[in-house]
């Protein structure tokens, strides 16, 4: 299973490196979202600094949608999905591999967005260890849920509109927990909340979705 996961993840990442869609389209889009938030919320009033954690995670969520859709598009062209199904790879491995590739892309994107938030919103990145742990846990949950719902919506003609409707409510807990944990780390939260509980929630979410994906991905792949 793990060997298959590495193979699939390597394949997806190689495609991204060669096609440069992630670097030329998804990353600029994410930065554009940050800039749009600054246009919408008056940058001089300190609103951006206080809301930075939430805005950061909304930008990540929107970019995650693109990344997941991209991971599905790769498998829909020229029967590559069928080839993957016939390859004899373990479906659980395929799921972990595709989710893993999304995790790598999103973590790189979060690093970029993090720099963007520090530079554009004037946030002081103290507590970076908590921030990093939050980012890893949240990204694993996002990628697992995204890959699972991506497979559910795959193959339908309306998948571009269906995926956000399915995925965004499902990952709303990630947005809430990641924002609270980041706020606690940055010291911008209104309440005196410890980030530990929220980190635990993020980990549980990630574990549940990874486990569910490992079990359910096989049957979902067979059908298409």
């Amino acid at each position: 299973m793990w060997r298959d996961a590495l193979l699939v993840a390597g394949k997806d990442l190689r495609i991204e490196v060669r096609s440069r869609v992630a670097t030329n389209q998804v990353a600029p889009f994410a930065l554009l979202v940050l800039v749009l938030f600054a246009f919408a919320l008056d940058p001089d009033r300190g609103v951006l600094t206080r809301a930075a954690a939430g805005l950061f995670w909304v930008a990540v969520l929107l970019s995650a949608l693109l990344a997941v859709q991209r991971a599905q598009t790769v498998e829909s062209a020229e029967g590559t999905g069928d080839a993957l199904r016939l390859s004899g790879l373990d479906p659980a491995g395929i799921f972990l591999g595709k989710a893993g590739a999304v995790v790598v892309q999103l973590l790189a994107l979060e690093l970029l967005l993090g720099v963007g938030v520090v530079v554009l919103y004037g946030v002081d990145p103290s507590g970076w260890a908590t921030l990093a742990a939050t980012a890893v846990a949240a990204t694993m949950g996002l990628a697992a849920a995204g890959t699972l719902y991506g497979a559910l919506a795959a193959g339908s003609r309306v998948r571009e509109t269906l995926l956000p409707l399915l995925l965004l409510p499902a990952v709303a807990p990630v947005l809430i927990a990641a924002t609270r944990a980041s706020e606690a780390a940055l010291g911008t939260g209104g309440l005196d909340v410890a980030s530990g509980d929220w980190l635990a929630l993020l980990s549980v979410f990630a574990v549940v979705y990874v486990a569910f994906g490992v079990v359910a991905f096989g049957p979902l792949m067979e059908e298409q």
Binding site: A153, S156, L162, L165, L166, L168, A170, A172
Partner: peptide, 14 residues
């Protein structure tokens, strides 16, 4: 929202 998504998924032709 989750169940609206569920109902939307049910309407996808398959």
């Amino acid at each position: 929202a989750l169940y609206l998504g569920y109902l939307a998924l049910r309407r996808v032709p398959a």
